[in-house]
């Protein structure tokens, strides 16, 4: 940003550093104000278009304020009240009671555990699988590349509900296809509905099935963007396939992996439909499927305890923020140790 630069400086710097990536220092532009302005007032070369910019962004910001921002702020307000389910106009201020209750609610902590267990089962194997598939897909002599890529994306267009229904049936204890196959190998049937860990694996499988192809494409795009020279010099140095992957490909995927982990975490905290189908709103007999979002849904809309539901929503947000912060810190540390 050239906040303190005069328009003329901006033009100069644009000419000395042309083209690539330089939107803000692009060539002299008629988009710039024709009248010379006081340097302070100039935010860039297109300052004439400021009013247009506000007009163009206003549909987004108006709608977003009403339906995005206000609800978020309002949820903090709600969380401080006890609402009467029968008469929503009746509300009592209860201060931090909802949050105090939350901290002591073993069902909440159970939901936290379940959510992270499902997240671990789905995210980490999925990442390994997606990177593996991407390295196969990136091979330029692969036949039918487009067909494979398209095939991998099909699961992603299916609704979570349909996925949950199909896999719920496939994972059935007595007549499910998966237990039939397990039985063929001479093992006992696994109860994917009543047992906690198998249940989490079943849900993680649904998530992985729906997302692994999509994420392979993400990793594939990142791999194709790696400068070819790096592979060439690795080949000249006589690096093995694994060494090339470990020391060339993987470090170049760092940002993509960070992105994947953050998006995966946010998505993981939103897991809802699969456990609802398998275990109902309460998350099954032992609450083994009660994830955070399902818990919010149960509290706010089944028990009609809006204040508590809002408190759960805030707790989810805090968890997302903490994880994102940890993620950024780790990435930064890795980045600085690289340099």
């Amino acid at each position: 940003m050239q906040l303190e630069q005069s328009p003329i400086d901006a033009v100069d710097s644009a000419q000395s550093a042309p083209a690539k990536g330089g939107r803000r220092n692009a060539a002299p532009s008629p988009w710039r104000t024709p009248k010379p302005q006081k340097p302070v007032a100039v935010t860039g070369i297109h300052s004439l278009n400021g009013r247009w910019a506000y007009l163009f962004t206003s549909p987004f910001f108006i709608m977003f304020t009403i339906f995005g921002l206000i609800p978020v702020v309002y949820s903090v307000y709600i969380a401080f009240y006890q609402w009467d389910p029968l008469d929503p106009s009746m509300q009592t201020f209860v201060g931090l009671d909802n949050f105090k209750f939350l901290i002591e609610d073993s069902n909440f902590w159970n939901a936290v555990r379940n959510t992270f267990s499902i997240w671990a089962f789905s995210t980490l194997p999925q990442m390994a699988l997606a990177i593996g598939l991407a390295s196969i897909l990136r091979n330029p002599i692969l036949r039918g590349a487009t067909v494979w890529r398209t095939l991998l994306l099909i699961p992603n267009i299916t609704s979570v509900l349909a996925v949950a229904l199909v896999f719920g049936q496939l994972f059935g204890r007595d007549y499910g296809m998966i237990n039939y196959v397990i039985g063929l190998f001479g093992f006992d049937h696994i109860d994917f509905v009543e047992d906690t860990i198998p249940g989490h694996i079943a849900i993680a499988t649904m998530i992985t099935w729906r997302w692994v192809g999509y994420n392979s494409l993400i990793f594939l795009a990142a791999m194709l963007a790696i400068p070819q020279e790096l592979f060439e010099s690795a080949a000249i140095d006589g690096a093995s396939k694994w060494q090339t992957f470990r020391y060339v490909t993987l470090p170049q995927l760092k940002n993509t992996i960070t992105f994947f982990l953050i998006v995966g975490t946010i998505g993981g905290l939103q897991v809802f439909a699969e456990p609802l189908i398998l275990g109902g709103a309460g998350g099954g007999a032992n609450r083994q499927f009660s994830t955070l979002t399902l818990f919010l849904f149960e509290q706010a809309f089944i028990n009609v305890n809006w204040g508590y539901g809002a408190a759960v929503g805030i707790a989810i947000t805090i968890i997302v923020l903490i994880i994102s912060a940890i993620n950024f810190m780790i990435t930064r540390r890795i980045a600085s140790s690289d340099n």
Binding site: G50, F67, L269
Partner: peptide, 29 residues
């Protein structure tokens, strides 16, 4: 493509809101 006051802040703001889980606004909505 346009330059205006608060542009940078607004972009950061939009990216920031993308990190918020959608359930947060469920009850108020």
């Amino acid at each position: 493509k346009l330059n205006f006051r608060g542009r940078r802040f607004m972009i950061l703001f939009i990216i920031g809101t993308m990190m918020l889980p959608s359930q947060l606004g469920l009850v108020p909505m």
